[in-house]
Deep mutational scan, measured.
Amino acid sequence: MALNTPQITPTKKITVRAIGEELPRGDYQRCPQCDMLFSLPEINSHQSAYCPRCQAKIRDGRDWSLTRLAAMAFTMLLLMPFAWGEPLLHIWLLGIRIDANVMQGIWQMTKQGDAITGSMVFFCVIGAPLILVTSIAYLWFGNRLGMNLRPVLLMLERLKEWVMLDIYLVGIGVASIKVQDYAHIQAGVGLFSFVALVILTTVTLSHLNVEELWERFYPQRPATRRDEKLRVCLGCHFTGYPDQRGRCPRCHIPLRLRRRHSLQKCWAALLASIVLLLPANLLPISIIYLNGGRQEDTILSGIMSLASSNIAVAGIVFIASILVPFTKVIVMFTLLLSIHFKCQQGLRTRILLLRMVTWIGRWSMLDLFVISLTMSLINRDQILAFTMGPAAFYFGAAVILTILAVEWLDSRLLWDAHESGNARFDD
């Protein structure tokens, strides 16, 4: 018995066209964080690309023209004298008006014999932002004059995390709450300039795509075929072959399989920071003279006294001054041990922890910024005066060393310790 099946006739004509040209192939790229070699397709503007294995951002879609970056830099340069030299806060102490600005706080630190601690604050609040705007201006002028731009481009990517104007702005709020127990506070004209400078700096850093600047100024022929001998440069993120001198053909720094002496430098910085954190938390970090009496505060006791007036601000200072430094030390110690013992479990967790400490590390400088600003506000000789204690130097040095330890660690070593050939990683 035959089955009668109805015929289905399409209502619209289906047209099949042959592909007349070869589909576009992607360029081969190595991930600078996990060293995976993959094919990167062509990316349009405002599109980002991520590593298929570790999800690290390979290409950032946010990109401004150099002219727009230069305009932002010149605007920031105009704001800087007002943000640093004009009063941020006014207080009335014992019937006398006192003005506080950024430069005055750094000068008070240096004047009291601790120039190293003052230079830490100076670099993060004044030096690094000033280098940022002058570097962008150098790129703008240098591109037109045919100057060598490689050193500036190499420095810009590392400079971003040292620009800490946003953290200093939080420190202004913390210092205001600490001082309000002794005097009446009012915002100064410099505060508005400083807030504007923070906003412009944040926007500029978020749109400063150094890798795209490398592509514009020093374009290189990408690798179009897969080759395990391809290496990625950690300076400019170019994937290719080393030249005859073993250097990256684009930025001219040595092109090595792994960062040289990464573990040794990381261990040295980490152990030194552990040693410095002990006096930083045991010795007094601030000293207040009130009517001839002397009151010393460690980091913890200062947080407890701050909690009596504002528990939320005390929580912020606790996280930045105690929780973050010790968390960074514990995480980095764990990561280094996992590399030495070739741990194969929990790779995803370790990668996330490394990215976390990379982002939060700079916030530990908050305590030094609060001390710097408070020193310029309260300084009335023996009637009422505020000065920093010996722990300030140890704390600042420990924070900087932990930042350097994270920067010096080559994250690809975590993958080397893991089993080879993993296309995915999980716990």
Score class of each variant (00 low, 15 high):
Leu169Arg: 01
Gly127Asp: 03
Asp227Lys: 15
Lys342Thr: 11
Met80Gln: 04
Gly173Ile: 13
Phe318Gln: 09
Met120Ala: 04
Ser376Gln: 05
Met109Val: 06
Thr224Ala: 13
Trp359Met: 13
Phe393Val: 12
Phe123Ile: 02
Gln244Val: 09
Leu69Tyr: 12
Phe386Arg: 00
Leu37Thr: 08
Cys54Gly: 00
Ala391Ile: 01
Glu212Val: 15
Met365Cys: 04
Leu79Lys: 00
Thr15Gly: 06
Lys111Ser: 08
Gly142Ile: 05
Pro129Trp: 03
Leu149Ala: 13
Leu404Gln: 15
Asn310Tyr: 03
Ile96Ser: 03
Leu401Gly: 10
Val324Arg: 00
Gln108Lys: 14
Thr374Ser: 11
Gly302Lys: 00
Leu88Phe: 08
Arg247Gly: 13
Met109Ser: 10
Ala196Leu: 13
Gly389Thr: 00
His261Gly: 08
Phe82Thr: 10
Pro222Phe: 14
Leu282Arg: 08
Asn143Cys: 15
Tyr50Thr: 04
Ala391Gly: 06
Gln382Arg: 09
Ser309Met: 09
Arg350Ile: 06
Glu42Ser: 06
Ser309Val: 03
Phe425Pro: 12
Glu161Tyr: 09
Ala385Glu: 03
Leu401His: 08
Ser206His: 15
Leu200Val: 15
Tyr241Val: 13
Ser45His: 08
Glu212Met: 15
Asp63Lys: 15
Leu270His: 02
Arg256Ala: 11
Gln220Val: 13
Gly26Val: 09
Leu277Met: 03
Phe123His: 03
Ile253Cys: 06
Gly188Ile: 05
Val189Phe: 14
Pro222Ile: 14
Arg245Asn: 07
Leu130Trp: 14
Gln295Lys: 10
Ser411Asp: 07
Val152Thr: 11
Val357Phe: 01
Val163Arg: 02
Pro390Met: 09
Glu22Ile: 09
Ser286Arg: 00
Cys34Asn: 00
Leu94Ile: 06
Leu3Met: 06
Asp60Lys: 07
Leu290Tyr: 02
Leu200Glu: 15
Glu161Pro: 15
Ile253Gly: 03
Ser45Gly: 07
Leu78Pro: 10
Leu354Met: 15
Gly315Glu: 04
Leu159Asn: 04
Gly246Ser: 11
Ser273Arg: 00
Leu282Trp: 14
Trp92Cys: 02
His46Arg: 05
Leu88Tyr: 02
Leu132Arg: 02
Cys266Asp: 06
Thr67Met: 11
Arg68Asp: 03
Glu215His: 14
Thr224Arg: 13
Ile371Arg: 00
Gly315Phe: 12
Ile339Ser: 07
Tyr168Asp: 05
Glu211Ile: 15
Trp214Glu: 05
Leu230Arg: 13
Phe141Ile: 15
Phe369Thr: 04
Arg348Lys: 10
Tyr289Cys: 03
Arg294Ile: 05
Arg348Pro: 13
Asn209Gln: 05
Asp181Glu: 10
Tyr394Ile: 01
Val121Met: 13
Gly396Gln: 02
Thr334Pro: 04
Leu257Thr: 13
Val195Leu: 14
Phe333Ile: 14
Ser48Lys: 14
Ile126Gln: 08
Ile378Val: 04
Pro254Leu: 03
Trp214Phe: 15
Phe38Lys: 04
Lys178Ile: 00
Arg348His: 11
Leu336Gly: 10
Pro52Gln: 04
Gly292Ile: 12
Ser119Trp: 02
Glu22Gly: 08
Ile116Ser: 06
Ala71Lys: 02
Ile311Ser: 11
Cys343Leu: 14
Arg259Cys: 12
Cys233His: 01
Leu282Ala: 13
Ala423Met: 10
Phe425Ala: 15
Ala269Leu: 03
Leu278Tyr: 02
Ile126Leu: 14
Thr202Trp: 15
Cys236Pro: 00
Thr327Met: 14
Phe122Cys: 10
Arg68Asn: 02
Gly361Ile: 01
His184Glu: 04
Trp214Gln: 11
Asn281Met: 12
Asn4Leu: 05
Ser206Phe: 15
Leu234Arg: 11
Thr201Ser: 09
Leu66Gly: 08
Gly302Pro: 00
Gly293His: 06
Asp63Ser: 15
Val210Asp: 14
Gly240Thr: 12
Gly421Ile: 03
Arg225His: 11
Pro41Asn: 05
Thr11Ser: 07
Val370Ile: 05
Ile177Phe: 12
Ile316Tyr: 02
Leu149Thr: 14
Gly302Phe: 00
Leu300Ile: 11
Thr327Cys: 12
Met164Tyr: 03
Thr204Ala: 10
Leu263Met: 14
Met80Ser: 09
Lys160Phe: 10
Pro151Leu: 02
Met155Lys: 01
Ala83Lys: 02
Ile106Tyr: 03
Cys266Arg: 01
Ile167Ala: 04
Ser48Leu: 12
Lys229Tyr: 08
Ala272Ile: 03
Lys178Asn: 14
Leu347Trp: 13
Met120Cys: 04
Pro242Asn: 13
Leu278Asn: 10
Ile172Gly: 05
Leu323Gly: 13
His237Ala: 11
Leu153Trp: 03
Ser48Ile: 15
Pro284Asn: 01
Gly396Lys: 00
Gly173Leu: 11
Glu228Gln: 12
Leu40Cys: 07
Lys160Asp: 10
Leu208Arg: 14
Asn4Asp: 05
Asn422Ser: 08
Ala183Glu: 00
Ile311Phe: 14
Thr201Phe: 12
Leu300His: 12
Val232Ser: 14
Ala73Pro: 03
Phe238Leu: 12
Arg260Ile: 08
Tyr182Met: 14
Glu211Tyr: 14
Phe141Cys: 06
Ser338Lys: 12
Ala175Ile: 02
Val275Ser: 12
Leu413Gln: 14
Ala83Thr: 03
Lys229Ile: 10
Cys124Leu: 05
Ile131Asn: 04
Leu401Met: 12
Leu37Ile: 08
Ala405Tyr: 06
Ala83Val: 04
Leu290Phe: 04
Met80Lys: 04
Thr204Arg: 01
Ala398Val: 10
Tyr168Ala: 09
Ala398Trp: 09
Arg53Met: 08
Ile14Trp: 05
Arg30Asn: 04
Pro52Gly: 06
Asn148Arg: 05
His90Ser: 08
Gly190Val: 03
Phe82Pro: 02
Ala312Glu: 15
Thr402Arg: 00
Leu283Ala: 11
Gly396Thr: 03
Gly113Ala: 06
Leu213Lys: 15
Lys111His: 12
Ala423Cys: 15
Arg216His: 13
Met164Gly: 03
Val152Gly: 03
Ile360Trp: 11
Ile383Trp: 09
Ile126Asp: 10
Ile116Asn: 15
Ile378Tyr: 01
Leu93Gln: 01
Gly188His: 09
Asp410Cys: 00
Pro81Ser: 05
Ala56Pro: 00
Asp227Thr: 15
Leu335Asn: 05
Val406Arg: 01
Lys328Gln: 01
Leu277Asp: 09
Leu205Asn: 12
Arg250Thr: 12
Pro242Leu: 13
Thr201Leu: 10
Phe38Asp: 03
Ile383Ala: 03
Met120Gln: 06
Lys57Leu: 07
Thr75Trp: 01
Trp214Met: 15
Asp297Ile: 04
Val195Ile: 14
Lys57Glu: 08
Leu37Asn: 06
Pro81Leu: 04
Gln55Leu: 06
Ala49Cys: 05
Asp166Met: 14
Lys111Glu: 13
Leu145His: 08
Ile288Tyr: 01
Leu153Ile: 13
Pro151Met: 03
Ser273Trp: 02
Leu89Asp: 05
Asp63His: 14
Ile339Met: 13
Ile14Leu: 10
Asp227Leu: 14
Leu165Ile: 13
Asp35Pro: 03
Leu230Ser: 14
Leu271Val: 14
Met36Ile: 12
Ile177Cys: 13
Gly171Asp: 09
Ala385Val: 04
Gln186Gly: 07
Gln186Asn: 08
Val189Met: 12
Val210Gln: 15
Ala223Gly: 14
Lys229His: 13
Thr202Pro: 04
Phe82Asn: 06
Glu42Val: 06
Pro249Ala: 09
Asp297Ser: 08
Gly113Glu: 08
Tyr168Leu: 08
Pro10Cys: 06
Ile167Ser: 02
Ser301Met: 04
Leu354Gly: 14
Arg225Asn: 13
Cys54Asp: 03
Ala83Gln: 03
Thr327Pro: 00
Trp92Asp: 02
Leu153Phe: 02
Thr334Arg: 14
Gly127Glu: 05
Arg355Lys: 14
Arg231Asp: 09
Leu271Gln: 13
Met76Val: 03
Leu366Ala: 12
Leu208Phe: 09
Gly421Pro: 05
Ile330Phe: 15
Leu79Asp: 02
His46Lys: 05
Val174Ala: 14
Thr117Lys: 06
Ser273Leu: 03
Ser193Tyr: 02
Trp363Gln: 03
Thr134Val: 11
Leu352Gly: 12
Trp92Pro: 01
Glu228Pro: 12
Tyr218Met: 05
Ile8Gln: 10
Leu377Tyr: 08
Gly61Thr: 10
Ile98Arg: 04
